[in-house]
């Protein structure tokens, strides 16, 4: 948690990132940037999914609809915050010549997506009459 707070400070202090180590080949930085953007797209897709659940499943009970939509929106928020955090950590590791940070977030996200998908199946099978 303290590590996360330190990273948050780094988001807004580009000079501090530059003080660490030496600048890597620009291609590595660009690859890191593309990975960040890919995670941001994932986050935007989750947010879009939240809107879509609300808009395109109007026959659902209110609780299910809002619950699913909010879960997807929250997953999008988490995903985007994690995207920038991981980007900063990778950037710093590359400057210092360390190993890139490992993360269990992809596994966590795929579990959440699987749970949401199962919930959708249950909702479609059971929730229609409600």
């Amino acid at each position: 948690m303290i590590e996360f707070v330190r990273n948050v400070r780094l988001w807004f202090a580009p000079a501090e990132v530059r003080e660490d180590g030496e600048t890597p080949d620009y291609r590595f930085s660009l690859a890191n940037e593309r990975t960040f953007l890919a995670w941001l797209r994932t986050a935007l897709a989750l947010i879009g999914g939240g809107f879509a659940v609300d808009q395109f499943l109007p026959d659902l009970r209110w609780g299910w609809r809002v619950g699913l939509a909010l879960a997807l929106l929250a997953a999008g928020v988490l995903c985007s915050l994690r995207a920038v955090n991981h980007w900063v950590r990778c950037e710093r590791a590359m400057r210092r010549g360390e190993d890139l940070p490992v993360s269990r977030f992809p596994a966590l996200l795929s579990l959440v997506v699987a749970v949401v998908a199962v919930a959708m199946v249950v909702v479609v099978l059971v929730g229609w009459e409600g």
């Binding site: 620009y26 930085s29 900063v88």
Partner: peptide, 9 residues
Amino acid sequence: AAFAPRHAA
């Protein structure tokens, strides 16, 4: 140049 953390944030 590398992407600025401020812009990423």
